[in-house]
Computed example of a mutant assay.
Amino acid sequence: MGYHVIDPDDLESVDGRPCDLRRLSEAAGLSSVAINRFRADPGEQLPLAYHYHEHQEEAFVVFSGTLHVETPDGEFEVIEGEVFTATAEAPHRAYNPESADDAVEVIAIGAPPADDDAVAYDPDE
């Protein structure tokens, strides 16, 4: 049997990301779901770009602050305690606006896990 207690602050931050990203599922040895902790200061976004996933579904659980998510259907504001979901092929860009007073902390859950599933989306095309 495998059990783990993980403190995201004990994990290394992933280099080359627009905000602080800690990969929880990797640390726990999970292979069927991707679980990540994001901490975005004002003006930072969570993903590398506005995108969608061909196969992966995502849920963003907001633990503190307010997450803003840009979509073709409009912008969503997701407050502490709420969950934002995106089905496969649903474009989105999650961020913390520059006008925010505080950082936003989010646990992102994606299944199936997919490192090469993100497709860049241009809302102007």
Rank of each mutant, 00 (worst) to 15 (best):
D9F: 10
G110M: 07
D115N: 05
P8L: 04
Y95G: 01
L24W: 09
V104Y: 02
G43W: 10
I109M: 08
H51V: 04
D122T: 05
H51S: 02
A120F: 15
G29D: 14
V5W: 06
S25F: 12
P113S: 07
V106D: 00
S32Q: 14
D101V: 11
A90E: 11
S25H: 13
F60V: 06
V33Y: 13
A94Y: 00
V78G: 00
Y3A: 02
D101K: 11
D124M: 03
L21D: 01
A27W: 15
V69D: 02
H4W: 12
G81Q: 03
G65S: 06
A100P: 06
N96D: 05
H92K: 05
A40G: 06
I6C: 05
A27G: 07
H55P: 01
M1A: 11
A34P: 01
D101Y: 11
G2P: 09
C19S: 15
A28R: 03
L24R: 01
S64E: 14
Y52G: 00
D9I: 08
V69M: 06
S25C: 07
F60G: 00
G81R: 11
G29A: 06
A120H: 13
S25Q: 06
V83H: 01
E82T: 06
A34K: 03
T87F: 11
H51P: 02
P47H: 09
P8Y: 14
L24Y: 11
E75Y: 10
Y121L: 00
P97G: 09
F63E: 10
E44R: 10
H4A: 12
Q56G: 01
I35A: 03
E75V: 14
F84P: 01
D20G: 00
A88F: 12
L11I: 12
G2K: 13
E12L: 08
S99W: 15
D101R: 07
F76A: 09
A100G: 06
A59G: 09
A49M: 14
E12K: 13
V69N: 01
P91K: 03
D117L: 06
R37W: 14
R39A: 03
E82P: 10
Y50N: 01
V104A: 04
A59N: 05
V33W: 12
H4K: 13
S32G: 14
P113W: 10
G65H: 05
S99E: 15
I35Y: 03
L46R: 01
G43L: 12
Q56C: 10
E54D: 08
A49E: 13
A34D: 06
M1W: 13
G110A: 15
E70G: 00
E70H: 13
P112W: 07
